[in-house]
Simulated scan of single mutants.
Amino acid sequence: MPPKKKARVSKTSAKSGKINDIEGTSAAGRKWKAAAPVKKTGEGSQSAGSAIFTCWLMKSEPESRFENGIDVKFGIEDLKALPDQTGCWDGVRNYQARNFMRQMKEGQQAFFYHSNCKEPGIAGIMTIVKEAYVDHTQFDKKDVHYDASCKPDNPKWSMVDVQFQRTMKRFLPLSELKKYHLQHGANGGPLKDMALFTRARLSVQPLTAEEFDFILSLEDKEPL
């Protein structure tokens, strides 16, 4: 039998990722458990650039894949099954993706994107319930995302807490989103510059409000 997957559950309430940052190997490389109390540093003040985003897309793997004996699977249903339907999005080891997480604000929404699977695409919506704080997995030698270059007094990596909001009325596959991206690129439209296609390798991506709203409208339409 394969080793049991450990769980990491955030205790953050609604009131208050493991991510290799390659299309296909993403946020689910995380083991979910209670986020250890950590003191915030000045890291959250860093920005991913001048643009300000309020919506996001975050990738995770819904199918089993083992790293060092640990199953890194984590899909939308796994988030839904956690206590309070809330978990910490840890394991991000790409600076741009990390900086996008540092821009996130409590109450903002993100699409939960299934990656590295038979049919990648947008599976649901989650809400940011805790803003960026120190990702403690960088110091854990047993964690698949341990970073030996990180020191407790000078952490490199951050994470946020997310809470399940709902699944999509219908799954929105990458293949359909790509068709809209190509149409909008040729004729104009909200998905012409969508990061899923222009910065595909990033596991944490920004969305404009226009992009988010257009994608949301697709769940009520017939597949393209």
Rank of each mutant, 00 (worst) to 15 (best):
A123F: 04
E119N: 13
Y133P: 00
K130S: 09
C117W: 10
Y146C: 06
V129K: 08
I125D: 04
G124S: 10
A132R: 01
D135L: 03
V129A: 11
K141D: 07
V144A: 12
A132I: 09
V134P: 02
A123N: 05
V134F: 08
I128R: 00
Y146F: 15
Y133W: 00
D147K: 11
K130P: 01
G124H: 03
N116E: 12
D140Y: 01
A123P: 06
Q138H: 04
G124P: 09
V134K: 04
G121R: 02
A148R: 12
H136Q: 13
D147E: 12
G121H: 05
A123V: 05
G121F: 08
N116Q: 14
D147T: 09
I122L: 14
K118M: 12
Y133F: 15
D143K: 04
N116G: 15
K141M: 11
Y146R: 06
G124M: 02
A132Q: 07
G124Q: 05
F139Q: 00
Y146D: 11
V134M: 05
C117F: 10
G121V: 04
H136A: 14
H145S: 10
I125T: 11
D140E: 14
A132V: 06
G124A: 11
D143H: 15
E131F: 12
E131I: 11
T127N: 11
E119T: 15
E119M: 12
V144G: 02
V129Q: 10
F139C: 00
S115D: 11
C117V: 12
Y133A: 01
Y133M: 04
M126W: 11
P120G: 11
G124D: 07
H145Q: 08
K118L: 13
D147S: 05
E131G: 13
C117P: 10
Q138E: 14
A123R: 03
I125V: 15
N116Y: 12
G121E: 09
F139K: 01
K142D: 15
V144H: 03
T127C: 05
G124Y: 03
I122P: 00
I125H: 04
D140Q: 10
V144I: 14
D143A: 13
A148Q: 10
I128K: 01
I128D: 00
I122F: 01
D147F: 04
V144L: 07
I125F: 01
K141I: 06
D140L: 04
Y146G: 06
H145D: 07
A132S: 15
G121S: 10
P120S: 14
Y146K: 05
D143G: 01
K141R: 14
D143P: 05
Y133K: 01
E131W: 10
K142M: 12
Y146S: 07
